[in-house]
Computed example of a mutant assay.
Amino acid sequence: MARFLITLPGRADGGRGARPAFPDSVTDLRQAFGPFDHLAQVGRAAEIAGFHGALAPFDPEGDESLVVAAGLLRQSRRLRAVAGFHPGIATPVYAAKVSASLQRFSGDRLDWRLVVDLDPAVARAQGDFLEGPDRYARAEEFLTVAKGVWSEEDYTYEGRFYQVLAGGFQSPLAGRAFPRVHLSGTSKEALELSARHADVHVFDPEDDIEAAGPPGVTYGLRIPVLARDDDDEAWEAARRLSSGTAPGTSLRNGLVGSFETVAAGIRDYIDRGVGVFFLEAAPYVEETYRLGERLLPLLTKEGARVR
């Protein structure tokens, strides 16, 4: 049974790259619309349209994904929020505590999307100077410690990167479900990390899923989509997007075509073992409704039910 999630923009302005026309403050009650209202609209569209969840991606120049995820969880009743973040942003104890609090008021609807392998320049701009296999060694310890303090009241750990002495959560933080962990990458280190810690291993369309997938882990796929009533209309919209006349995301290696064509492409991935889809489409609000109303029902009819 496949699950479908929509990918949010990494920035409150919708990723347009320009400063929004409205003020940055969302607390000024004189303003009818603030920058985070766009993200809220996409989240509401995802829930109304029947998506299983929404991904708040890690964007080094964008809004903090855990803050965005908290907003999505607060305004929705069933939508799961996947927060993408880098393990260098905080200690695993603090990340676990923030997440336990989010689980408490959302009914355990928070997931993690850990981004381990950053471009070195991006990583250094985030204050992280680890390179090579050390990045995965730290991620291993990060997840080990986060799960340890989450599940044990008297937890002690001593590693290369983190140390905890007699830690662990008690009431009211204890007892919640640990966030589902989404990881990615095709290197040996990435696949071994997923085999030990991931609930979902997320691939890109160009990856060899059959050859690279870690055993015992659900396969996910990040894929751009553009669907219209027929193939010609879809490709014309894709040409407008690629020429810059329409705001959106890159369709490189994505699925473009009629709703039936795109549904067939997704069913092919399901047959290859993919169980979770992170769909990328823009403009975000409009396309979320469009895909929910026209694409997801086709997949439901074929047995790939949204849950």
Rank of each mutant, 00 (worst) to 15 (best):
Gly257Met: 02
Ser151Cys: 07
Leu241Asp: 08
Arg74Met: 10
His38Trp: 12
Tyr155Cys: 06
Pro172Asp: 08
Asp208Leu: 02
Ala54Gly: 11
Ile89Tyr: 14
Ser99Glu: 06
Phe169Gln: 00
Thr7Val: 13
Leu102Ala: 10
Ala81Gly: 04
Asp231Tyr: 05
Pro92Asp: 02
Gly34Asn: 03
Asp117Ser: 15
Gly14Ser: 07
Val42Thr: 06
Glu140Gln: 15
Glu293Met: 00
Phe142Lys: 05
Val276Asp: 14
Ala177Ser: 14
Asp134Asn: 05
Gly43Val: 10
Val217Tyr: 12
Arg222Gln: 09
Leu79Trp: 07
Gly14Asp: 04
Arg290Leu: 04
Leu55Asp: 06
Pro179Gln: 09
Gly53Tyr: 11
Arg239Thr: 00
Phe277Lys: 05
Phe36Gln: 10
Ala96Tyr: 09
Gln103Met: 15
Asp108Ile: 09
Ala211Asn: 03
Ala2Arg: 08
Val145Lys: 09
Tyr162Glu: 06
Asp207Asn: 13
Arg44Cys: 11
Arg124Met: 07
Ser65Ile: 01
Leu279Gln: 07
Gly71Trp: 05
Thr300Ser: 13
Asp204Phe: 15
Gly265His: 10
Val145Ser: 05
Ala282Cys: 03
Leu296Thr: 01
Glu131Thr: 15
Glu152Pro: 10
Ala45Gly: 14
Arg44Tyr: 14
Glu260Val: 06
Ser243Met: 00
Gly303Thr: 10
Leu29Lys: 11
Tyr136Gly: 00
Gly53Val: 07
Gln163Ile: 03
Gln103Phe: 13
Gly167Glu: 05
Ala238Gly: 01
His86Ile: 03
Pro297His: 04
Leu165Asn: 12
Arg11Met: 04
Ala190Arg: 06
Ala198Leu: 12
Leu191Cys: 02
Ala238Pro: 04
Tyr162Phe: 15
Asn253Pro: 00
Asp28Glu: 08
Phe278Lys: 00
Val285Thr: 08
Tyr136Met: 02
Arg124Leu: 13
Thr7Asp: 00
Ala246Leu: 15
Lys97Asn: 11
Gly107Ala: 13
Leu66Cys: 03
Asp117Met: 13
Asp229Ile: 01
Val276Pro: 00
Arg290Gly: 01
Ser194Lys: 14
Val116Ile: 15
Glu260Ala: 13
Pro205Trp: 12
Leu130Pro: 02
Pro224Val: 12
Gly265Ala: 08
Arg77His: 09
Arg19Leu: 14
Ala234Tyr: 00
Asp208Pro: 03
Ser171Gln: 12
Thr261Pro: 02
Arg78Val: 08
Val145Gln: 05
Gly216Leu: 07
Glu236Met: 02
Asp117Gly: 14
Thr156Leu: 01
Ala238Thr: 01
Gly175Lys: 13
Glu189Asp: 15
Ala137Phe: 01
Tyr94Thr: 15
Gly62Lys: 10
Gly17Lys: 05
Gly53Leu: 09
Val262Gln: 06
Ile209Lys: 09
Gly185Cys: 04
Gly88Gln: 12
Ala69Asn: 13
Arg305Gly: 09
Gly53Ser: 06
Leu295His: 11
Leu299Thr: 04
Ala96Met: 09
Pro215Glu: 08
Val26Asp: 03
Arg222Phe: 11
Gly254Ile: 03
Gly43Leu: 05
Gly17Asp: 03
Ile48Ser: 13
Arg196Ser: 06
Ala81Arg: 07
Lys188Pro: 01
Val26Tyr: 03
Pro20Ile: 04
Gly216Gln: 11
Pro215Ala: 08
Gly185Asp: 06
Gly10Asn: 07
Val149Gln: 07
Leu143Glu: 06
Phe169Val: 01
Leu241Thr: 11
Glu286Phe: 05
